[in-house]
Write a protein that binds this DNA or RNA. Structure first.
Lengths: 200, 200
DNA sequence: TATTTTATTGAACGGTGTATAATTGTGTGC
DNA sequence: GCACACAATTATACACCGTTCAATAAAATA
């Protein structure tokens, strides 16, 4: 068969990503299959490779979609909130991960070949999330420490990530930790206290 | 061929784990292949399945070996150290991950099927590492807060893990973070200050 | 020595990502 | 209106993967 003007290239791209993301949410990274995605949308496997070039690029596109959803969720949660916005942001981190277990986990299961950098649009999506959190961190810092916001934001994200990761992968359950979110929030508060009390 | 008394079952187990671990360090979780391990030790793929029962159990055995090496390294680093032992422990966390990138990452890339618990000996190995760190955390806490050591240890491990993970998977590089270890150590100090200053 | 037990094999199966030659519908120029 | 060129799509082939299992051969037992 030849050209099938049902869809433009971009529409097809969108269809594949949508179904791919659904697949990722259902099956998880380990069981994800590009062939299965092709089958479900009624295209052949070859078409996926014409559109994305490789398995890795398909995964990057799907993970990019997850980042989009993540940022949108974060902004929705923060909209209109006046008090404790950073608290809400951390809670949203956990809640999104719990609501999209497999897709969220896939963000960290996938790794590019050594030395290869992620495409720019992927980096942009990630940075957008970090920037959104950075705004909340900055507003919690006293003005004289405003310059600490970027570095502190990245450290707090790592901190929260560690707690969230251990909560989802069963490590905390194995170790008897019962309130990962509450614990993560304690660590965030501890870090902010460093600057609120003018130590160092 | 039939019984080949070159090795006992346990010796063969050991041989497979040793070569499997080597393979894991070289290729990483995504490219790891049980068939390749079999080929390299001169046994057939069927034999691996007779010994371990499944791919998952083979991986668990290899990851268990990584945990053994991790604990041994941590103890070696702490041996004879008198000051700043917790600092050394955190440094050892990072250094082991860097020295055994692929094997360390595989600990977190691998996930058992939903609802399945890891075998007890795996849990024991993990707990041993946590306990070793807990001793150092406890010795940093004032006596009146000794009861906080278990929960705080698990939280600090998650904190350090998050920083180490982002350092290794390229996230920090993408975000311009230059000193992941130093940043993690700051977060550890912040958490300890909560109890050293008698807040809350 | 005959028989049972046990370790080991390797082929078969259904799945994967990847590459590419062949095919077919569409749009263009004559 | 028709032939041609283009571009999208497919089907097939390939080399791998984890998994299963009947067949086999060597050691242990009787």
């Amino acid at each position: 068969m030849g050209r099938r003007s049902d869809h433009t290239r971009d529409e097809l791209r969108e269809i594949i990503i949508r179904e791919g993301h659904r697949q990722m949410e259902e099956a998880g990274f380990a069981r994800f299959s590009a062939r299965e995605v092709a089958k479900r949308i009624g295209y052949s496997i070859g078409t996926l490779y014409n559109v994305f070039g490789s398995y890795d690029h398909l995964i990057l596109a799907i993970n990019g979609r997850t980042l989009d959803l993540w940022l949108a969720y974060l902004e929705r949660r923060l909209a209109g909130v006046e008090d404790d916005r950073l608290h809400v942001a951390v809670d949203a981190y956990f809640q999104f991960a719990l609501d999209h277990r497999h897709a969220w986990t896939a963000l960290f299961d996938f790794r590019l070949p050594e030395g290869e950098a992620p495409p720019e649009d992927y980096a942009v999506k990630l940075t957008a999330i970090v920037d959104a959190v950075e705004r909340e961190v900055a507003s919690e810092l006293p003005p004289e420490h405003a310059d600490k916001a970027p570095a502190l934001t990245r450290s707090l994200l790592a901190t929260v990530h560690g707690h969230c990761f251990f909560a989802l992968n069963g490590t905390f359950e194995l170790l008897g930790v019962t309130d990962p979110l509450g614990t993560a929030l304690e660590r965030v508060r501890d870090a902010l206290d460093r600057y609120r009390q003018n130590r160092e």
